[in-house]
């Protein structure tokens, strides 16, 4: 969890921008009952959005499309990564194995 001030300092964006991006659901954070909790992954994503807008001149509609496609790309990469892991281990692709692998791979990163 990163506090708001540190988040803005790290990403170089202004509060107004952050609010806008959260409203547009470009950033979702982790919602607790009362507040929005921002973490490292949100900071990295905010930096990406900032790069797209400031450096690449992408407009808001463009950012939306880029994020949408990127999110799908990462979803795909994750699945392909799991399948590759399974194939390297010389095992037949099977749902139960994949579930196990997934559990073992990601459990330690929490």
């Amino acid at each position: 969890m990163i506090d708001l001030e540190a988040f803005l300092a790290r990403t170089g964006i202004e509060l107004r921008m952050l609010e806008q991006w959260v409203e547009r659901e470009w950033l979702v954070g982790e919602r607790s009952e009362t507040s929005l909790i921002l973490t490292d992954v949100d900071a990295a994503r905010a930096q990406l959005i900032h790069d797209l807008k400031r450096d690449f001149g992408v407009n808001d509609e463009g950012v939306e499309i880029a994020l949408h496609l990127l999110d799908q790309l990462h979803g795909l990469r994750r699945i392909v990564g799991d399948m590759q892991f399974e194939a390297e281990a010389g095992r037949r692709l099977n749902k139960r194995r994949l579930r196990r692998i997934r559990y073992e791979r990601y459990r330690t990163r929490r």
């Binding site: 992954v41 994503r45 990406l48 999110d71 799908q72 990462h74 979803g75 795909l76 929490r110």
Partner: peptide, 21 residues
């Protein structure tokens, strides 16, 4: 800089979507 891709592949990537499948 910590790039978004460093997070997006792990379970932390709560943004990743299955819309492509």
């Amino acid at each position: 800089q910590q790039f978004y891709r460093d997070y997006a592949g792990s379970d932390f990537g709560r943004y990743a979507s299955d819309a492509g499948y």
